[in-house]
Nucleic acid binder design. Structure first.
Lengths: 205, 205
DNA sequence: AAAAAAGATTGAATGAATTCATTTTTTAAG
DNA sequence: CTTAAAAAATGAATTCATTCAATCTTTTTT
């Protein structure tokens, strides 16, 4: 059976993560104090730092859970994609974007992305980067499936195209998060327009 | 003539900026303390904050100077581009990347990019974003020139293609900055491969 | 040229993240 | 069951960015 120590550890970890996620949502990242997170989780400040390297780390951890969901949502599209390159891309990317704001504010996204750039070595940043890689793979997989179905010109470098599409949608999401005034629809419209040339050109005649 | 007050202001501003740029290079961003920057610039800590909103702001200011140079370097390529789509893109992007590490370390880039994402409202973040926009324009301008020369298929949505290429090279630069081990050559090779499909497809027959 | 107003500088005080020497709890050994 | 070793938890102390009321300097007005 699981040792007491391991059980307590998992329990404390969950309490800290839950307390943080809740507090971030309630008051935003900057106003959430470690002291308060620790208090709600019923641990000391020092213990918090035994579980997470720093304040940013725990935000990136909560955001990562969200990205997992985005990935899962994307799978349903990849498994059964619309039968045009443009349509399939629009569906997958739309799914990503729609899911992104369910639990997280733009401010939280900005902070998480900033941290994952600034401290790429921290464990949770690595996890975030890994999730990005899986999202990129998902886009490439979609293109590949379309190619197998004969919707994309044979000989197309699927990996290269997938990476370019993903990097574009990713950077556009950063722009979106930076601009509190930009609505989701504008983001989608801009990305659709950007995708169109490539999508049209790789479509099998 | 210039008033005494205006002259002193410009002088102090320069001293602060110089002191900060130097110290960042010497000890890195995190270890550079405002107190030390202020001391070197021969002003008080309070005065520092009259000139820059926060610590991040002054880093973004130094990075902005660098981006201006990158833009200028890009202009020479746009004014006289190689006569193939792929070659022209490789030349422009290579120029960008080569210039990027002359004065700034990867750590400084990471921090600057992180700040411009996290606090998009601060004056210098706005300036940084504006410079990104101009870089994006430069890429679009290159494609447009190639189109006028007959090297790019007429009817191509130059703006859309330019944005996608720029967003891709920009995100790849973030990846590069995140990974201390990645050499410039690898970055260039990966971007070249990513660009190839689009570059080939928009090339006029 | 004196006085008033406007503009800047100053550094001590504040507040929050992070550290670390101590103490407490759990596990393993005899 | 006792005891030694290992692992974790603790919170007071430290460190730094940032603020702000008091002070000083420059400009404008009379």
């Amino acid at each position: 059976m699981t040792g007491l120590r391991a059980r307590q550890k998992a329990d404390r970890n969950r309490r800290i993560l839950d307390a943080a996620a809740l507090l971030f949502r309630e008051v935003g990242y900057d106003s959430a104090r470690i002291e308060d997170i620790a208090e709600r989780a019923e641990v000391s400040v020092g213990t918090f730092y035994n579980y997470y390297e720093n304040k940013g780390d725990i935000l990136v951890a909560t955001v990562s859970m969200e990205v997992e969901e985005v990935l899962a949502a994307g799978r349903t599209i990849v498994d059964n994609p619309p039968s045009s390159v443009e349509g399939a891309l629009e569906a997958l990317i739309g799914q990503y974007y729609d899911h992104s704001l369910v639990y997280l504010s733009k401010e939280m996204w900005r902070t998480a992305m900033a941290i994952s750039i600034q401290q790429p070595k921290s464990p949770f940043s690595k996890r975030y980067t890994e999730l990005d890689r899986r999202l990129c793979d998902q886009v490439a997989t979609l293109i590949h499936k379309l190619q197998v179905k004969g919707l994309v010109t044979p000989g197309t470098d699927v990996r290269a195209v997938g990476e370019m599409l993903f990097n574009n949608l990713n950077l556009m999401f950063i722009e979106f998060a930076k601009d509190e005034a930009m609505p989701l629809d504008e983001l989608k419209a801009r990305v659709t327009r950007q995708n169109r040339p490539l999508a049209t050109l790789i479509a099998a005649p």
